[in-house]
Design a protein around this nucleic acid. Structure first.
Lengths: 183, 183
DNA sequence: ATTTGCCTATCTACTAATAGGTATGTATCT
DNA sequence: AGATACATACCTATTAGTAGATAGGCAAAT
């Protein structure tokens, strides 16, 4: 892994651990052996770094989507849950949730990229929910986009909320979604 | 309203608009005619101000709970939704969501107070859901605390997420919760 | 009735730390 | 020679927080 990738991954960690406005170039320079000024060589501004982090997430998500193109809706759902399970295990929050609370402080290109990311996520979940319903694996009423919004909301929020309640609440919510959804 | 109360309300606005780490004493001093140093007279540290903001929310929530002690579970649910409706209309996010993403940067007394707040919210919702189920107004499976977690998660997240998708998604999610819950 | 002194709430002026960012130099590799 | 990937040194703005002065109100003492 080269320096640029390392910077992106560290920034990603900090954003989802502490929030965009709470992490600094110094935090990164402190973890890898590089001076803060050198980070600007790879990413002129903090916003550029923010965009790169989101792009990294888009790539990862697109890879998940592609690798699961041929699997069943149930497998896709499990894969979806595993993304959030990993976030919870690391005691982080999801990127969308983290940046959404800071949204009004972000500059336009970060906002735009974040919207792109959430759109990809929402489309993917909507599609495999719809597919699962057609195949009689899932059961829900109303539009699949709405159900996707509901499930994503649950996941996005529970990784945040369970920082305050109990870590176990993640599993509680996950199982509740499965029980309601799966026929 | 005295200066101290004004400071709390402004801090509350900023926290839920931009996040705890993105607002400064200057932001407040800029809105009311007071110097930043004078804010420290009322709140020695930023954390003290944070605690006061959460306490303000606890008071408000306790008032809502008390004023609705004798109303029906359905009215309580509507009242619960109206809290988030207001948040959405102001394009803010809820306090718990905002501070949960910054959680690892907060100091202990703020964390503790925030946990208190989320506990009160969760208990209240759990109780009126349970009551509504007993009275055959609501229909859901599993523990009422779990259902409360699900509904609070939906609300907490959709005020964040709909900053990225469309504002209307708040109503979509709200109606979906109602359709699933109400017999 | 006036003075004295304390309390409250503010200001001015300051500090030390941290922030994001820039300009320039330099070593290495192609 | 030029591009790449750093470092050094620096800048400016902003941050939370402190110290000390001040001004008004109130209440007890003179």
């Amino acid at each position: 892994m080269n320096t640029k990738e390392q910077i992106i991954q560290l920034a990603d960690c900090f954003i989802r651990e502490k929030g965009f406005n709470a992490f600094s170039f110094y935090d990164i320079s402190n973890k890898i052996e590089i001076k803060t000024a050198s980070i600007h060589y790879h990413f002129p501004t903090k916003s550029d770094l923010g965009v790169a982090v989101i792009e990294y997430h888009i790539e990862k998500l697109n890879k998940v989507i592609n690798d699961n193109k041929l699997t069943s809706p149930m497998d896709k759902l499990d894969r979806f849950f595993s993304i959030y399970k990993k976030i919870k295990n690391e005691n982080k929050v999801c990127l969308v949730g983290s940046l959404a609370t800071d949204f009004n402080t972000l500059d336009e290109k970060v906002k735009k990229k974040l919207k792109e990311f959430s759109e990809i996520m929402l489309s993917w979940v909507s599609e495999f929910l719809e597919d699962g319903r057609k195949k009689d694996i899932f059961d829900f009423e109303g539009e699949s986009r709405t159900k996707a919004l509901m499930i994503i909301s649950n996941m996005l929020a529970i990784v945040q909320l369970s920082r305050l309640t109990t870590q176990n609440d993640f599993e509680v919510v996950k199982k509740s979604i499965q029980r309601e959804l799966i026929k």
